[in-house]
Design a protein around this nucleic acid. Structure first.
Lengths: 353, 353
DNA sequence: TTGTACGCGTTATCAG
DNA sequence: CTGATAACGCGTACAA
C-alpha cells in the first residue's frame, strides 16, 4: 500500500483502540462500553467507572464511520450559504453554528451556494455527506425548492433569519423592521425630511422588512412614500454607488440616505466624496449590519447590529436537540432577537437645509 | 424511534439503494460494482455500462460511512486556521481548499484555532473526524507542535504560506519579499525618503519577509535602516492606529507609511485624519493583502494582492493526489506565486516636502 | 475479467 | 443492569 508524502508509517503511534479492547480491559461487554460512551442511563456506577477508566487508559475514541454506519446517522450537520464578497453575515452564522456543533459533538460540513441555486448540487451534497440536519441561512432559508428537497430526503433543517417561521419548524429571526424603523426615526429626529432609501437584494426577506420599517417611520411622521427616493440595490458596494448617483442627481436631492447594508452605505459615501458632499454635514448616511467596513470608513457608519452569531448558535442547538429526539419547547422553535442601534458619525448632525 | 421536527417519516422516499441492489440489478457481483464506482481499470466495457446503467436507474450513491469504515480512510480533509476579525486571507484559503475538495470528492472539516493554540483541541479534532489529511494556514503552518502531532497521528498535511518549505512536504508560498520591495520602491520613486514601517504579527512569517523587502529596497537606494521608523503591529486595525500615532508624533515624521496589511493601513488612515494630515498629499499610505477594506477607505489603498485562493486550491489538490498514492512532481511540492502590486490613490502623489 | 467471503468498529435487538 | 450476536454497506485478499 503506497502512502503519500509526510509518510509516518515508521514512527506512527499504535492504531487507535477499539471498543473491543476497551471492553476487554474493563472486563465487560462491548455493549456496556457503548452504553457508557453514549451516556445511556442503565449502567451501574461501578461499571461505568471501570469502563471510563479503561477508556482513559487506552485513549479510546469511537470511530465515527463505524458509529455512522451502525447507527444510521452521521453526527454531522451541513450549513448552506451564499458567499457574497461581504462575508460578515455568513461568517457570523458560521461561528455560531460551529460553536454549537463543537459543543454537541457534531461535525459541520459547509456548502457554499451560488446566486442561482444548484439544486442538483445540493442533492449531491446530501448524498455525499449524509448529514443528519441542515442549517439554512438567508436567503436560501426561503427557497421552497431547497426545503422540499430536504424534506424529501428526510433531512431536518432550521432557518436562520427566514421571511416567516414555518409551523413546526425551527427558526431564529432578528426583528429588522423595528430596527429599521428606529434607524429612520433617528434620521427624522435629526431633522431630515427627504430620506433616500436603497433596497437590499430582492431575494433576501430582510430587504422587504427594512423597507417596511423605513416606510412606517415616515408614515408616523406624516411623510408620504416618494418612489423617487427609493432605489433598488443588491447589497453590494457597486450597487450602492449606482443607487447613490441616481438619488443624488435629483434636483431636490435627499439630505440623508438609508442604505440597507453597510457595503452599499460605503458606496454612497464614495459617491458623496465624488460629488464633493460633506458627510454628515451635507448628507447623512446610515447602513445596516455593523459589518467591519462600518468602522473603517470615514466617517464611520451609523448602523444596526444583529446578534447573528448568537442566533445561529441557539437555533443549531435546537436542531441538534430535536435530532436527538428531544422535544424542543415552543419558545425555542421560533426565536426572536432584538437588534441594536449603533450610532456613529456618518449620521451625526442635523441637516443644514 | 422518536424523530424530531420536520419529521418526514411518512412521506420520505425509499431508502437509498445499496451496492447489493445495484449488483443484483446489473447482474454482477458487488465487487464489480465497487470496481466501477472506484474507477478501477480491469472491467470490461460491457460490464461497466451495465453497472453504470443500474447505478443511474437506482440513484445509487456509495455510503460514505461504510466506505470509510471498510477502506480505513475518511475521504475528508481538515483545514486549520486562525480566525481574526479580518477574515480575508482565511476566507480566500477556504474558497480554494473547498474548490479542490469538491472537485476531488473530498469533504472538508474546519477547525478554527485560537491565537494560543490548543493542541489537545486539535488532537480531539483529529480523533473525532479521522481526516485523511490537513491543510495548515498561516501562522499555524509554522507551528512545530502541530506538525509533530499530525505526524504522530499519521495525518499528512500541506502548508499554505509557511516560513520555509519542508523537504518532502507540500507547500504553496507567495513571494512577499519581492512584492514588499516593489511596494517600497514605488514609494521611493515618488520621492519619499522617510518611510515608516509597521510590522505584522510576529507569529506570521510573512511579517519578517515584508520587513526584509522594505529594508532591501531602502538599502538599494542608499538609505539606512532607522529603528525609529519601524513599529510593531499585530495585523489589526487598533494596532495600526497605535503604531501610526507613535510614528507620526516624531518631530521628523515620515512622509509615507508602509503598513504590513490593509487593516493596519486603514488604522493609519484614521490617525492621519485625526491629525489633520491629507492623504496622500501630506502622508502616503500603503497596505498589503488587497482586502475588501482597501477599496472602501478614502482614499482607496495602494496594496499588494496575493493569489491565495489559487494557492490553496493547488496545494490541496497536491495533497489529495498524494493521499491517493500518486507521486507529486517536485515542482508541485513547493509552489511559488507572484504577488501583484495594486496602485490606488493612497500612495498617489509625490511628497510635498 | 469476475466473484466469494471476511472484516472494518459500531449500534441495536433481545434474551438473560 | 448486562451480554451475545446480528446487522450496517463497502473494500479487499484470494480464488476462480
Amino acid at each position: 500500500m503506497k502512502r503519500g508524502l509526510n509518510d509516518s508509517k515508521t514512527n506512527a503511534t499504535a492504531p487507535r483502540a477499539t471498543i473491543v479492547e476497551v471492553a476487554a480491559a474493563a472486563g465487560v461487554s462491548i455493549k456496556t462500553v457503548s452504553r457508557v460512551v453514549n451516556r445511556e442511563a442503565s449502567v451501574s456506577d461501578r461499571t461505568r467507572e471501570k469502563v471510563e477508566a479503561a477508556i482513559q487508559a487506552l485513549g479510546y475514541r469511537p470511530n465515527p464511520s463505524a458509529r455512522s454506519l451502525a447507527g444510521n446517522r452521521s453526527y454531522s450537520l451541513g450549513i448552506l450559504y451564499q458567499a457574497p464578497r461581504e462575508f460578515g453575515y455568513v461568517r457570523n452564522a458560521l461561528d455560531g453554528v460551529m460553536a454549537a456543533c463543537e459543543a454537541e459533538g457534531y461535525a459541520l460540513l459547509m456548502r457554499p451556494c451560488q446566486d442561482v441555486l444548484d439544486l442538483d448540487g445540493v442533492d449531491q451534497f446530501l448524498a455525499q455527506t449524509r448529514i443528519d440536519g441542515a442549517v439554512l441561512t438567508a436567503p436560501i432559508c426561503d427557497d421552497d425548492q431547497v426545503m422540499a428537497l430536504l424534506t424529501e430526503r428526510g433531512v431536518p433543517f432550521c432557518q436562520l433569519s427566514p421571511a416567516a417561521h414555518r409551523p413546526g419548524g425551527l427558526s431564529a429571526h432578528a426583528d429588522d423592521e423595528p430596527a429599521s424603523r428606529a434607524l429612520t426615526e433617528h434620521l427624522l429626529s435629526l431633522g431630515h425630511r427627504r430620506i433616500g432609501f436603497i433596497l437590499g437584494h430582492p431575494d433576501h426577506s430582510s430587504s422587504a422588512q427594512r423597507l417596511a420599517g423605513y416606510l412606517r417611520a415616515l408614515k408616523r411622521h406624516g411623510l408620504r412614500k416618494d418612489a423617487g427616493l427609493i432605489a433598488q440595490g443588491y447589497f453590494e458596494f457597486e450597487s450602492g454607488k449606482a443607487c447613490a448617483r441616481r438619488l443624488l442627481k435629483r434636483k431636490h436631492r435627499p439630505t440623508a440616505i438609508f442604505a440597507s447594508n453597510d457595503e452599499m452605505a460605503s458606496g454612497v459615501l464614495y459617491v458623496a466624496r465624488e460629488l464633493g458632499l460633506k458627510v454628515p454635514e451635507d448628507l447623512s448616511i446610515v447602513g445596516f449590519d455593523d459589518s467591519m467596513v462600518a468602522e473603517r470608513t470615514w466617517p464611520p457608519l451609523t448602523t444596526v447590529r444583529q446578534p447573528v452569531t448568537a442566533m445561529a448558535d441557539a437555533i443549531t442547538r435546537s436542531l441538534i436537540k430535536s435530532l436527538r429526539g428531544h422535544p424542543v419547547a415552543a419558545k425555542d422553535q421560533e426565536r426572536h432577537y432584538d437588534c441594536e442601534l449603533v450610532l456613529r458619525a456618518s449620521s451625526g448632525i442635523a441637516p443644514s437645509e
